[in-house]
């Protein structure tokens, strides 16, 4: 099998987010970037398929400017065979999806893996758009997958439970926590990543359909009102007032 893992280059989960003065973009100064954690579940899953000799090649792809190559290198260190960067600003989900789909069309992937959302824009848009552009089946929020004889058995999270689907490959999937355990790159992986190629290709789509007008900070919490544990009935009254208890 040939597997594509599309990743986003996102601020580390511990980052304090600040925006530029014009409120249009993230202030990147001093921010550490990582592989989007949900994409990492997909990447780990794909590397696992290689170890089981079920996948021949794992290609990791990111749409973005030169700076995203540091994140692609991390993915190579974790075990992807090859990295591809599509050289354009990922201004909206449509640009990202259109470029991924255009690349994938030429490549005959059996699996196209994504994260359920990126932790920067939290949109859950790209994988579904890619599936539709390529006219492929799509399973979102996957927490488990087994592949036998060109068929995938996928468990997907749903409201208050989960469901199991049988889907023929090729398949587009977005990962939720549970699909695979994150892998930490070892020294050998990091050394090998240096020799693995990063192919840069030109974009096919650069016109966004949606733009950011402004970024603001969420309203902070007003001061915490402390309740004495000896006076627990006061907390009961709070619950009643908030509509949590009736």
């Amino acid at each position: 099998m040939k597997v594509l893992v599309a990743i986003s280059h996102v601020p580390d989960t511990t980052t304090r987010i600040t925006f530029t003065e014009d409120k249009k973009a993230l202030n990147k100064q001093g921010v550490t970037f990582i592989i989007n954690p949900y994409d990492e579940f997909s990447l780990s899953y794909a590397v696992g398929l290689k170890e089981q000799n079920k996948a021949k090649e794992v290609i990791v792809l990111c749409v973005g400017p030169k700076e995203v190559e540091s994140t692609l290198k991390k993915a190579l260190a974790i075990g992807a065979d090859k990295a591809v960067r599509i050289d354009t600003e990922p201004k909206d989900a449509f640009i990202v999806a259109a470029n991924i789909a255009a690349y994938a069309k030429e490549q005959n992937f059996d699996l196209l893996l994504f994260g359920k959302e990126s932790i920067d824009f939290n949109g859950s848009q790209v994988p579904g758009m890619v599936a539709e552009l390529l006219q492929l089946p799509f399973v979102s929020f996957a927490t488990k997958m087994e592949i036998e004889n060109g068929k995938a058995k996928v468990t997907r999270e749903i409201s208050g439970g989960s469901e199991i689907l049988e889907v023929e490959l090729p398949l587009v999937l977005s990962a939720q926590k549970g699909l695979a355990k994150e892998r930490i790159p070892n020294m050998r992986g990091i050394m090998m990543a240096r020799r693995k190629p990063v192919e840069v290709i030109a974009p096919t789509e650069t016109q966004p359909k949606v733009e950011t007008l402004q970024l603001d900070y969420p309203k902070g919490r007003t001061q915490c009102k402390f309740i004495d544990p000896e006076n627990i009935d006061e907390l009961v009254q709070v619950l009643v007032n908030l509509g949590a208890l009736n």
């Binding site: 987010i17 932790i119 402004q214 970024l215 603001d216 900070y217």
Partner: peptide, 9 residues
């Protein structure tokens, strides 16, 4: 946006 750390218009 940014996992509850920002509000995007």
């Amino acid at each position: 946006a940014y996992s509850n750390k920002g509000i995007e218009t």
